[in-house]
Computed example of a mutant assay.
Amino acid sequence: MTIEEASKFFKNLVTETDETSEIKVYKKFISILSQLESRGLSEDQLRAIESKLDAFDIDIPRENRKKYYNKRLSEFITYLKKEFSLISEGYYMTIGMSLGMSLGMSLGMTFGVVFCGSNGLIYGMTFGMTIGMSLGLAIGAAMDANAKKENKVLSVKCK
């Protein structure tokens, strides 16, 4: 199944349902597929993507369509990330914030207890988490900006 055929298929599914959450899944697929079409991929890359779409068997009627296509969407995004280094918007910022909070909290607890005794535990943890989250967000935002410059970002938002 070509990217264009898959896009038409999901556009057709949008018209067949009234369920908002189901429509969001289809629109996310459509958005990603249209971005891939306009990306100027090589023939080999297009064939790889099309074979992945074929492997999903998306054109076979399903009983619980939303659940099935939502799972396939997650698999497709993971595939694009692994094979083509394409990431979703805010990917690095999310990771940076999580790591920053974790490391900041543990370091804050350690230094809070060392410098302020048992009363410093809460203050150190709070301060460390805030500083760690801020640093993680800043580093993640810089990495996201760099990925955007390299044209490695896919918008997964539905339009």
Rank of each mutant, 00 (worst) to 15 (best):
T2P: 01
T2W: 09
I3A: 01
I3T: 08
I3M: 11
E4T: 10
E4Q: 15
S7C: 07
S7D: 06
F9V: 00
K11N: 12
L13K: 11
L13I: 02
V14N: 00
T17L: 05
T17D: 07
E19N: 13
T20P: 01
T20R: 13
S21E: 15
E22C: 09
E22L: 14
V25M: 05
Y26M: 07
F29Y: 11
I32N: 02
I32Q: 02
L33E: 03
L33G: 06
S34W: 03
S38N: 13
S38H: 09
R39D: 04
L41R: 00
L41D: 01
L41W: 02
L41V: 05
S42G: 14
E43N: 10
D44T: 13
D44G: 15
R47K: 15
I49Q: 04
I49N: 02
S51I: 14
D54W: 02
A55G: 11
D57C: 10
D59I: 13
I60N: 12
I60M: 08
I60C: 09
R62Q: 15
K66V: 00
Y68A: 10
Y68T: 10
Y69H: 15
Y69S: 07
Y69N: 11
R72F: 08
S74E: 12
E75A: 11
Y79D: 03
Y79A: 05
K81N: 14
K82S: 11
F84M: 11
F84H: 05
L86F: 12
E89S: 08
Y91Q: 05
M93C: 11
T94L: 07
I95N: 03
S98L: 12
S98F: 08
L99P: 01
L99Y: 13
G100T: 05
G108K: 05
G108D: 06
T110G: 10
V113W: 08
V114P: 02
V114H: 08
C116N: 15
G117W: 02
N119S: 13
G120I: 00
L121W: 01
L121F: 10
Y123T: 07
Y123I: 09
Y123L: 07
M125V: 08
G128H: 04
G128C: 04
G128K: 02
M129G: 01
G132P: 00
S134C: 12
L137H: 11
A138P: 04
I139C: 07
G140W: 05
A142D: 10
D144F: 06
D144C: 06
N146R: 15
K148T: 15
K148V: 12
E150C: 10
N151E: 09
K152V: 00
V153G: 03
V156K: 04
V156R: 04
K159W: 12
